[in-house]
Amino acid sequence: MKEWVDRLPGWKQGKVYIVPTPNGLIFLAGVAIVIVAGATYNNNLIFLLGFFLFAIFVIGMVETHNNLRDLQIEALPIPDQHAGEPISIPLKLVNGGYGLRQMIELVPHKREFRYGHPLQVDEVKGHQQTVCSLVCAPLPRGVYQVPALSLSTVYPLGLFRAWMMLRAEGEFYLYPSPSGNLPLRLVEHENESSRSEAAVGHQRGDEFREHRNYQTGESFHRVDWKIFARRRRLMVKEYEGTTDRSFSVRFQDVPVRDAEKILSQMSRWLDQAKERGAPFEMILPSKRVSFGQGPNHYKECQRELARFKGAA
């Protein structure tokens, strides 16, 4: 999944380009009017005003251009997240130059990644850095490079827009977006005698441990209706002993043809398994992640899903 890293034809990274904005063109037209008026009335004061405005225009160009000099971006560690939501990418904007850089706008270079308004950084002092968070459009699951960004500014007078293209090193994972409501598959443990293979159940007599949020796809039998009556929330009773169980998240358990849908269901299962704190394994056609527990295990499984390339 390296579409993002495609070559960006024509734009050289870190090179500053500059063009007048529409406002700049209007300003220039105004300057032309003033100079023509000066010539018409043979009025040197008007000439002086016209030339001064033109000089402001030129200086504005220089300043706008310099406002992007020596800027660099670095990607900060990007937390994994589910696909389907806008992606927030934390970045560090580094000013390697002496002067103040102000009013920098950041936007993904490619149009399809843009989301909402450009990110605006008010100022970065000389030899300093600032951390900001860029929001990208939602993308399908996968492993992505941090997108190339286009930095632009119209500071100080808005007569010119200078921009440049920068790329930060770093990648991030988008897990499949969780969906589907098939029940999670319970695996019998060797020390447990007999458990139904179907939905997660519980045995009366087990010691009550805690309440937790109800998740779609779970059996309604375990919902604590008293709590529902009181708090209008679906809570599930959790019993001591259920932690002894473990789950299996398997590709072949989902009776759908669409691989993406399967992955989405698996992603949801992983979420559920993590929520219950029980060990789980994951089996993909090409890969098997054996039983484990904890955030790292969860991450490993989800990343496998993100990385998954077609059914074998």
Partner: peptide, 24 residues
């Protein structure tokens, strides 16, 4: 900004060719 612009403005003022036109 103005201080930076003044030298350029003065140079233009001195060297910009004067012409007489009557638009108005």
């Amino acid at each position: 900004l103005a201080l930076q612009a003044i030298p350029l403005a003065l140079v233009l003022f001195v060297f910009f060719p004067r012409f007489n036109i009557s638009l108005w």
